[in-house]
């Protein structure tokens, strides 16, 4: 399983994917450029409909590229689709297994699809690794969701792929199963040395699992880097304090490093370059017995997402669109 890899598991250049045409044209992917280094866990973070799944479909050869280039494991997705497909594994958002068959039979079937020889011992190792060995001959419709998910990952690993695609790996799972899956993704990455491309709309998931993250929205990559690189893009800490009596806003604003001051009664939100410098200066200018409560929010992926997309993840309908809709209504009434 050697592809001509030069340090990059996936290279995407100026890639576009359009559905429909004319007035109904949907730009699911809009000039996406992305490089995913070998051996990383790479996260695509974005809301539903951002283009995450479309990117996976295009890279796995399920959907055709409208424009641009992509290579996976060193092979051109368009011209060398079979070579790509021999070197990738895929874990679906919804678990897709053959329910009429046992875990072992599902593995046998996957081996046939991949035209593998001498795969049996690896299959047994995978069953052990995922603690499925003692139930391997049961039909998989008897399995719990967690077990089904584990079997699906085992299927994806059977042919020793270079890259694994995981589409929303923890969607619809309960909290404990999600934790288990996080451990599995990290474990799989360490144990099998495989590059993982996963999509998610959970910020904490991207933060916990990924070496690198790309923020994707409306078919475009808006930011890309390691979680700490992304966080350092937001060059501000948020300090929130509650005071006993009203403060003079101007006095707070004069403290060096303060970027923005917002007040709601005695609750203050202060945007500062760094809280480490700001707090001593604050205590020098305000009597400490005046402060009832104080907290510091360091830059998080949440604040990064807000910064690059202009909205919070999960807040699918941006406020500006509602305003536009309202304005249109008023115009129509006139």
């Amino acid at each position: 399983m050697n592809g001509p890899l030069n340090g990059s598991a996936i290279v995407v250049k100026d890639l576009s994917k359009h559905y429909g045409s004319g007035a109904r044209l949907v730009r699911a992917l809009d000039h996406v450029t992305l490089t995913i280094p070998s051996g990383t866990v790479f996260g695509l973070l974005g809301p539903n409909g951002a283009g995450k799944t479309t990117l996976i479909k295009v890279l796995t050869g399920i959907s055709e590229i409208t424009d641009g280039d992509a290579t996976v494991a060193g092979f051109d997705v368009r011209r060398q689709s079979m070579d790509v497909r021999a070197r990738i594994g895929w874990v679906a958002a919804e678990v897709i297994l053959d329910d009429d068959f046992s875990a072992r039979e599902n593995l046998w079937f996957q081996a046939k699809l991949q035209s593998l020889k001498g795969w049996e011992s690896r299959a047994e190792d995978l069953l052990k690794f995922f603690s499925l060995a003692d139930r391997a001959d049961e039909k998989v419709n008897q399995f719990s969701t967690g077990m089904r998910k584990k079997l699906e990952i085992a299927l994806a690993l059977l042919h020793q792929p270079l890259v694994i695609f995981m589409d929303e790996p923890t969607i619809g799972l309960d909290v404990s199963t999600r934790r288990m899956l996080w451990d599995i993704v990290t474990g799989v990455h360490k144990e099998f040395g495989v590059t993982v491309l996963l999509t998610t709309h959970y910020i904490e998931e991207a933060d916990a699992l990924c070496d690198r993250i790309a923020i994707i929205d409306q078919g475009r990559i808006l930011a890309e880097g390691t979680p700490s690189e992304l966080k350092s893009r937001v060059r501000a800490d948020i300090v929130q304090l509650e005071t006993v009596e009203p403060l003079d806003a101007a006095r707070l604003s004069r403290i060096p490093g303060v970027q923005e001051v917002r007040a709601q009664g005695n609750d203050w939100t202060v945007r500062v370059a760094t809280a480490d410098d700001f707090l001593p200066r604050l205590f020098a200018s305000v009597r400490t017995d005046q402060i009832r409560r104080i907290s510091v929010e360091k830059p998080s992926l949440e604040t990064v997402f807000l910064e690059v997309t202009g909205r919070r993840l999960g807040q699918d309908e941006p406020i500006r669109d509602v305003r536009r809709f309202y304005a249109q209504m008023q115009r129509a009434r006139r």
Partner: peptide, 14 residues
């Protein structure tokens, strides 16, 4: 409909 066609075709099966 069950997505199994995807499972088949994301392998070198034509």
């Amino acid at each position: 409909r069950f997505g199994f066609m995807k499972r088949i075709l994301i392998t070198p099966t034509s």
